[in-house]
């Protein structure tokens, strides 16, 4: 599949979406993800819900091509999910757990160098970094090192690092965690903008407000309330 190169921080093109069919994972004889299917089309958000330990993060990791499947299939944007594929990685941006960050760069520099590794020229990368900093309302953190921020601020910075690169599919694990009410609303606005631009967003969440704000379909895993 040929991939175009738009400005960093914006989806490439409308995606073909995510198709998960009867995916099941087991480790050491224990089922960690029961057979699960879901479909998320371009410009569509699907919220994965369920109790702690139900397998929400495992499902996201499977879609991100990180987990080995015991059965079923995951196709993302027409590509079989496999994080070893450069083409797949270019299509999918994910924030599942804390990303490995550089301790010696400021927030702005970190965003800019991430954008540069995705093909942005230096000035474009700086502009993209400024763009996501404004969007995530973390202007005051622009010149901070990452050990100088609170856990909620770190969550927003990790989200900015995920958004500063091009993508068609966005995978997020509880993007609302550690955020106060105003910042949760801001995240909802940011994700709504990505959906409007044609990206597919699949996210695990415990926030009914976020689901409602994004008008998401829900895919529930597990039985408990």
């Amino acid at each position: 599949m040929k991939v175009d190169t738009p400005a960093p921080g914006r989806p490439l093109t409308a995606s073909d979406g995510v198709t998960v069919e009867q995916v099941r994972l087991a480790r050491l004889g224990e089922t960690i993800l029961p057979p699960t299917s879901l479909r998320a089309g371009p410009g569509e958000a699907v919220a994965i819900t369920g109790p702690n330990g139900a397998g929400k993060t495992t499902l996201l990791r499977a879609i991100a091509g990180i987990e080995r499947l015991d059965s079923g299939s995951v196709v993302v944007d027409g590509i079989r999910a496999d994080e070893r594929s450069a083409e797949f990685r270019r299509a999918v941006a994910s924030l599942i757990g804390r990303p490995s960050t550089a301790r010696d760069l400021t927030v702005h520099e970190h965003l800019a160098i991430v954008a540069m590794t995705w093909g942005a020229a230096r000035d474009e990368a700086a502009a993209a970094a400024d763009g996501v900093i404004d969007e995530c309302a973390i202007t005051e953190l622009r010149q901070r090192f990452l050990h100088e921020v609170s856990s909620g601020q770190a969550q927003l910075i990790h989200l900015a690092l995920t958004l500063v690169r091009p993508f068609r599919i966005l995978l997020l694990d509880e993007p609302e965690q550690r955020l106060d009410g105003a910042r949760r609303d801001r995240v909802a606005e940011i994700l709504a903008a990505r959906l409007h631009a044609g990206a597919t967003v699949v996210y695990a969440t415990h926030s009914a407000a976020l689901i409602e704000a994004l008008g998401s379909r829900t895919a529930r895993i597990g039985n408990a309330a």
Binding site: A64, R89, P99, S100, T117, R165
Partner: peptide, 20 residues
């Protein structure tokens, strides 16, 4: 060698950088 360590650790979050 901080950069070398960070590059190696980036395998854990492969979708962050556009380079292997």
């Amino acid at each position: 060698s901080d950069g070398l360590r960070h590059a190696a650790e980036s395998r854990q979050s492969r979708s962050l950088y556009g380079l292997g």
